[in-house]
């Protein structure tokens, strides 16, 4: 085994990373309302109780609408920006790209309050739509980061070859560039979707009376009796996202194998 000390350290670090995640299913199946050891026995009642939670389903529906819209919009904006920054030179490129990428480091609360001030100032009522506006702002830099690496990997002469063989810029984009950056587009959508689905602050500030899943979860933490159900919900969410990520990772690797590239890292 290579890297003895480092391997042991990394495994220890992974235990730290996984500590909360491992507890999640344990308490989801624990037959007790208090989230603490010792465990009280096995039950699936929190999962069945989930179905009859009144606030959960509207929140889930809102979250899905927001996450899907955010994924599509930020990926479209990401494709435009990534293509512009990798393929073209234009005046003001550095400051413009800097501004677009700023939310990557900006605390979410700043984005949330500044948007809130503007929206209330011009009288736009808070709704799902305003949450989408905020989420797109926040996820677009991630989409750009992923898509830029996809566009950078493209040999410029592939595009020229398509023109040379009679295609227009539009059909060359469709026939050559789009298929080649497709893994990047899928990654970008998945990441944006997941980030939006999990985002709390912006949804909390800009959602108005519309509650998203994280806002719902946050509100339930105030009632200890509701917490086991949240554990059950969290377990399902983790299982789904791990499944989704595994599928995405599988397709990413297959995509790399298909285009003959070398696997050099994750899709982040």
């Amino acid at each position: 085994m290579k890297g003895g000390v480092f391997r042991i350290y990394t495994i220890g670090y992974l235990l730290f990373l996984y500590a909360p995640v491992v507890l999640l299913p344990i308490f989801a199946f624990n037959d007790g309302t208090v989230i603490a050891f010792p465990l009280q026995g096995f039950t699936t009642r929190w999962f069945t109780q989930m179905w009859s939670e009144p606030g959960l389903w509207p929140a889930l529906k809102n979250s899905l609408i927001i996450a899907v819209s955010t994924a599509i919009l930020s990926t479209v904006l990401g494709v435009l920006a990534a293509r512009a920054s990798t393929r073209y030179r234009f005046p003001g490129k550095a400051p413009v790209m800097g501004l677009i990428m700023l939310p990557l480091v900006l605390p979410e609360i700043i984005v949330a309050v500044s948007l809130l001030v503007v929206l209330l100032g011009i009288g736009i009522p808070l709704s799902i739509f305003t949450v989408i506006l905020g989420h797109v702002l926040m996820t677009t830099p991630f989409a750009i980061a992923i898509l830029t690496s996809a566009f950078q990997g493209l040999d410029r002469s592939l595009e020229e070859a398509a023109y040379d063989l009679g295609e227009t810029p539009v059909s060359a984009f469709r026939l050559v560039i789009l298929p080649l950056v497709m893994p990047g587009i899928i990654s970008s959508m998945l990441i944006s979707f997941t980030l939006s689905l999990d985002e709390f602050i912006i949804a909390f500030f800009l959602g108005g009376t519309q509650v998203t899943l994280p806002v719902y979860i946050f509100s339930q933490f105030r009632f200890p009796a509701s917490v086991p159900v949240i554990m059950a919900l969290g377990t399902i969410l983790v299982a789904l996202s791990v499944l989704l990520l595994t599928v995405a990772e599988y397709y990413r690797r297959r995509g790399i194998a298909k285009s003959g590239g070398k696997d050099t890292g994750g899709f982040l």
Binding site: L80, A81, Y88, R89, K93, L99, I110
Partner: peptide, 28 residues
């Protein structure tokens, strides 16, 4: 011509960031 193509592509994300990020920050 190149600058024009680039500006055309960057316009939607740039305008989005100007309206929903820079302007709100200034208002803040």
């Amino acid at each position: 011509a190149e600058a024009k193509g680039g500006l055309l592509l960057i316009a939607p994300p740039a305008i989005y960031a100007l309206l929903l990020l820079l302007a709100p920050l200034l208002l803040l």
